[in-house]
Amino acid sequence: MTKTTVPGLRTATERGHLVLALPPRTGWHNYTAIREALYEALTVPSARGHAGLVVDFGETVLMDASGLVLLARAQARARLLGRTLRLVVPPSDGRLRDALDATGLGGLVQVHPDIEAAVATPPRVVRPRDAAAPDPAQVLDAIRALHPEDVRLSRCLPDAELTITTAYPPGDDHVLVHVGGVLDQITVSRLGEALTTMIEKDAVHLRVLTHDLIRVRCDPLPVLLGIRWRACAEGGCLSLANLPPRLRQIIDREGLGPAFQCGRLTAPDLTTVS
């Protein structure tokens, strides 16, 4: 293998596959450089006849959460480009294999015990329209759960990982708003803007359900109370369900549990939360 511009990162071609062996230590200190090398490998080699990309974790030690984030992003890029991405993880690396299973990454990328096994059979080219889209928020939430003390994880993903999806159950006048990812000083304003837009479009009965692994890194009450006031002024309500422990503690501490219960709230009820 020959060295690239990333210290310790080696590349080679095996049976038509491009193989990238990660440096001895993979962490936030070299995350950006490795990510760019992976992105280039997923795009440029496609014009050179490479069958797919194999990322070899065999000789690297993951120092933090960056390696899993790197893999999640590389897999998403490969799917969008219709490229094949495979991993080499030795059976002896039980820690990484457990992490792949816990985060769901093991179900998104083919994992092999060595390079020979990874390149033994022709890869199946995945077309973007045929691929089942992964849930980035769920995977990244699972990575955060494995590395709750990794401060760089939050800094690396400051606001792009908040997910907001809506559903309209038949026979129910409430709009279900599913919220996942990270709720912090940046993303909470995005949530407020999204809910305000819904109210302005006459969706005044909102029921917010938070993902089981949502990360709450700020006090969202000022925004949520503002949205509740706005909904009540229009004759609607804002209720919260499936609250994570930290948000439940904040609401209970302020005695605001009844204010966000499911059900209709009318304008006079506003006095109970002032």
Rank of each mutant, 00 (worst) to 15 (best):
G82A: 04
P90R: 13
R77N: 09
T121M: 14
H112G: 00
P134H: 09
A132D: 13
R77T: 12
H112W: 08
P123L: 09
R77S: 10
A78T: 00
H112F: 13
L81P: 05
A131S: 12
A117Y: 03
V88Y: 04
R127K: 10
D101L: 08
A118C: 02
G104R: 08
A102K: 15
A76N: 13
D114R: 03
R124Q: 12
D114V: 02
D130V: 05
P136K: 09
L85M: 03
R73I: 08
V88Q: 06
P113W: 10
L85C: 02
L105Y: 05
L108E: 15
T103E: 03
A102F: 13
A102P: 05
P113C: 09
L80E: 15
R97A: 10
Q75E: 15
L96W: 02
T103W: 08
D101C: 02
V89T: 04
T121D: 15
V125D: 06
A117N: 12
R77F: 04
D101P: 00
L105H: 04
G107Y: 05
D135I: 11
A76P: 02
V109P: 01
T121Y: 14
A120I: 06
L108W: 12
V119E: 01
T84L: 05
R97I: 05
G107Q: 07
A76L: 14
L81H: 07
P122M: 07
G94A: 12
P91N: 12
L96V: 14
L108V: 09
V111R: 03
E116N: 12
V89G: 03
A102D: 14
A132N: 11
P136Q: 10
D135A: 13
G107T: 08
L87G: 07
P90N: 10
T84S: 15
L96A: 05
H112N: 09
A137P: 04
L105C: 04
R97Q: 14
Q138N: 12
A117I: 07
D93A: 09
P91D: 14
V125S: 11
G104F: 07
A118F: 00
S92D: 08
Q138P: 03
R97Y: 08
L108M: 14
P90L: 11
I115N: 06
D135S: 14
L105R: 03
L87S: 08
V126S: 06
Q110Y: 06
R127S: 09
Q110S: 14
